[in-house]
Design a protein around this nucleic acid. Structure first.
Lengths: 126, 126
DNA sequence: AAAATAAGTTAGGTTTACCTAAGTTTAAAA
DNA sequence: TTTTAAACTTAGGTAAACCTAACTTATTTT
């Protein structure tokens, strides 16, 4: 039943999370702008996410995460943070590039590598 | 003119590189087995790679890389090695997982992060 | 060399993730 | 309140990456 999300879907979810945290809810427009994608693609993605019970979405209305959606996007955010911290604070990569790279790596790296990386980052920054 | 390759295409190329190094050339069968994908998908990919002048490929024959193909796959291999070294030797991740993760990250990480990572790995292992 | 097997290809189909152009709904201005 | 503009959706199309089933070519075996 719980099919694994694609990188793209994880990204949509993450974006909604951030927008919701800032404004209480997300709009198609803002999601589109954030991911640099056209609105129809967002609409399409939202329909899928709704079908999987990850977002509350009704056409022409604003968007929020369901409980499940929230819990998944928080996990993705955690991954993101660890990677960003490593890239930026340990390796010293510029914020922008560290952000971008984290955003891509977070969807493909294994749980084990991520855990090790986390420990590594924490012990490096004492 | 030089369109950026997709992660998948980079992977096909890398696979041909490895097989060619071991046996002088690659076969559809072996590529399929290595990437764990069915043969028709390999045939399709090879046609595209041929169109971009990256492999020497004629139906029913064995496959080799062109000069361009070789040079690209060597770059990908370099990325792979750096990532693997970091994951396995620095973080201490199991070979198999380190391989897998490297194989995914190598297609998405930026040049800058990779260079820093490389320096970092080299200085860590003295 | 004929038959059997393995390797490779073709045809046609699916899903994901985009897009543009055109139409609809909602919100804001006049 | 009518008009205009912005936000959103629908329809229809494309490209990448896969697949299965059926066919073809090449290689072995007998």
């Amino acid at each position: 039943m719980k099919k694994k999300l694609t990188p793209n879907m994880e990204n949509y979810l993450e974006t909604v999370f951030v927008l919701q945290r800032e404004h209480g809810h997300a709009h198609v427009r803002d999601i589109a702008k954030t991911i640099r994608i056209k609105m129809p693609s967002v609409t399409e993605a939202l329909r899928k996410l709704k079908k999987s019970n990850l977002v509350n979405y009704d056409r022409y209305n604003s968007i929020t995460l369901t409980q499940r959606g929230k819990s998944i996007s928080q996990k993705v955010m955690k991954r993101h943070k660890i990677l960003f911290k490593f890239l930026h604070e340990v390796l010293g990569i510029d914020k922008n590039i560290a952000e971008e790279d984290a955003c891509k790596i977070e969807h493909v790296i294994s749980y084990k590598s991520l855990r090790r990386l986390n420990k590594f980052v924490e012990s490096s920054l004492i």
